[in-house]
């Protein structure tokens, strides 16, 4: 993998800029899967979305400057998630016309693919798992635009400008959605986070 390191002042962290698309995709695939899994509640749909996003990156954007790959990738990912939401809505309408129920959603925990990491303190591990489940539930419950802003700003660490590019909106809208998302999460998770 060939990459360089740049600084993200907004989150006081360094980020890697890849010169090779394969390396970039390898670095983001797990996060993209979990984001899609939280948003869609279904691991097969999430995997399809991630692969579809990768296909778009390879076919359309691999010749773009590498510093554009991150906002482009997550914009495509979020658009695919949005498209699947609307696809499910249409299919539900079909199901209503045909008189048969459609249930393409899996209500299980989005973080069930997280392996049980062996440790020395079962009580601590149990609390950690409960906390993670609470986080995933709270994020999944956010209104879609707040969820997008949170995933891109906080989870991925995109700048406000790059998040605006990924969401297709203004920086002001990003700040509003993100602030509201944090307020909602703070309320939903007050038992787990006391800060």
């Amino acid at each position: 993998m060939d990459f360089s390191v740049v600084s993200n002042a907004e989150f006081a962290e360094t980020q890697v800029v890849f010169r090779d698309l394969e390396g970039f995709l390898a670095a983001v695939e797990r996060r993209a899967f979990l984001m899609a899994r939280v948003a869609l509640g279904n691991d097969n749909d999430a995997l399809d979305i991630v692969q579809d996003t990768m296909l778009v990156m390879v076919r359309k954007y691999q010749n773009k400057p590498s510093e554009e790959w991150r906002p482009l990738f997550f914009r495509v990912l979020q658009n695919r998630i949005r498209d699947l939401y609307r696809y499910r809505k249409v299919r539900s309408r079909f199901a209503g016309w045909l008189g048969s129920p459609f249930d393409g959603e899996d209500d299980s925990d989005p973080f069930q693919q997280v392996a049980d990491v062996p440790g020395n303190n079962p009580a601590v591990e149990l609390e950690s798992r409960r906390s993670m489940e609470a986080v995933s539930t709270a994020v999944a419950a956010l209104p879609r635009r707040q969820q997008q802003a949170f995933m891109l700003r906080c989870w991925e660490g995109l700048s406000t400008a790059d998040t605006a590019t990924a969401m297709g909106c203004s920086e002001g809208s990003v700040k509003t959605h993100y602030f509201r998302a944090l307020q909602a999460l703070q309320e939903a998770l007050k038992e787990h986070y006391h800060g």
């Binding site: 698309l21 394969e22 797990r30 996060r31 899967f33 991630v50 990768m54 296909l55 693919q113």
Partner: peptide, 20 residues
């Protein structure tokens, strides 16, 4: 992300290979 199970990680690698 670092604790994802092996099966899901394998499917993601496969998706990446297919895309490339």
């Amino acid at each position: 992300e670092s604790q994802l199970d092996d099966n899901t990680a394998r499917r993601l690698r496969q998706a990446r290979s297919t895309a490339l």
